[in-house]
């Protein structure tokens, strides 16, 4: 259904996405993991044709045979929400604070499906029930600020589902939520995907979240997909040094239930776009680096010079 190949996104400072390749079948669930700044959000936005104006996007995104890179704005618009939907990183600011929840969900239904206001609101209530909000009819009249973070995230998901998309991209849907609520949201996403036969891309830097929901996993670092495969396999036997570092940095489950505690991390930070090395993006931070890693880009899966030899 979705076939991404050679997808690159260039900014003035450099390439923020470097020839990404992915495939996704109908109803399949894919996780995308990587540290902050590795290009996860950008990848999601590119699939909707919503990369920032300053970005130059090349390569190919085929959705049911339709090429999206360079497609006219009107074609993309008829896809957004109806075929591919996206839930954004900050659930607290993801809903227009001035509009009632019911009107927000009804809007795309009225515009794309031509429903009357009453019919659209009925459908909105059904959607709110589907995402597990109790007393949905009363919710329609509420404003976003009258709801908790978890409830708002459910509303954003309901909004994304409004026009029955075939693919839902959820960008860090649980970062701002506490552990309990996060788990419920993750289960909801998995169940929705199963029930609706809807493909799901779950973007997260939290490997536990990804393990809970997805079938396959792609690891992103510095704009490169460094490794991908079945989620269980990648997590059990990571082959790329970055993946290994990421898993090692994962907090032990029993250690703490409070996410606000600093996570043990890979030493250093993702360099700024302009400072990324031309060869393997991970060189400079990699514990098992080879002399030519900095200048020569590794290929294959995992994309690592150690693997090739």
């Amino acid at each position: 259904m979705l076939e991404v190949s050679g997808l690159s996104v260039a900014f003035k400072a450099g390439l923020a996405l470097r020839g990404a390749a992915l495939t996704l079948a109908k109803g399949e669930r894919l996780g995308i993991a990587g540290e902050s700044g590795s290009g996860k959000t950008l990848l999601g936005l590119s699939l909707l044709g919503m990369a920032p104006e300053a970005a130059h996007v090349t390569g190919s995104v085929q959705f049911d045979g339709q090429e999206l890179v360079g497609a006219p704005e009107t074609a993309l618009r008829s896809l957004r929400g109806q075929r591919i939907a996206m839930v954004f990183q900050e659930p607290l600011s993801a809903l227009n604070p001035l509009r009632r929840v019911g009107d927000l969900i009804a809007e795309p239904l009225r515009l794309h499906r031509g429903l009357s206001r009453a019919a659209a609101l009925d459908r909105a209530a059904a959607l709110l029930a589907e995402v597990g909000l109790p007393d949905p009819t009363a919710r329609l009249r509420q404003y976003p600020h009258e709801m908790s973070g978890g409830q708002r995230q459910r509303v954003t998901i309901a909004l994304a589902l409004a026009c029955d998309p075939d693919l839902l991209i959820a960008d860090e849907p649980t970062t701002a939520l506490d552990v309990q609520v996060a788990a419920h949201i993750l289960d909801l996403l998995r169940d929705l995907s199963t029930r609706r036969r809807m493909a799901l891309i779950l973007i997260s830097h939290d490997l536990r979240a990804i393990a809970r929901v997805t079938d396959r996993l792609a690891i992103l670092y510095g704009g490169d997909i460094v490794e991908q495969g079945p989620t269980a396999d990648v997590l059990a036997a990571p082959r790329h040094p970055y993946t290994q570092g990421l898993i090692a940095a994962r907090p032990v489950l029993s250690a703490s239930r409070d996410r606000r505690q600093p996570l043990p991390t890979i030493p250093g930070n993702v360099p700024a776009l302009a400072d990324l090395p031309p060869g393997c993006r991970f060189s400079g931070r990699c514990p098992v680096e080879l002399p030519h890693c900095h200048s020569t880009r590794p290929t294959g899966n995992p994309a690592c010079h150690r693997e090739a030899t």
Binding site: R77, S78, R80, Q82, A85, E107
Partner: peptide, 11 residues
């Protein structure tokens, strides 16, 4: 973000 949300619903 809510502007992105609105765009992503195809408005």
């Amino acid at each position: 973000t809510y502007i992105r949300t609105a765009t992503a619903t195809g408005l």
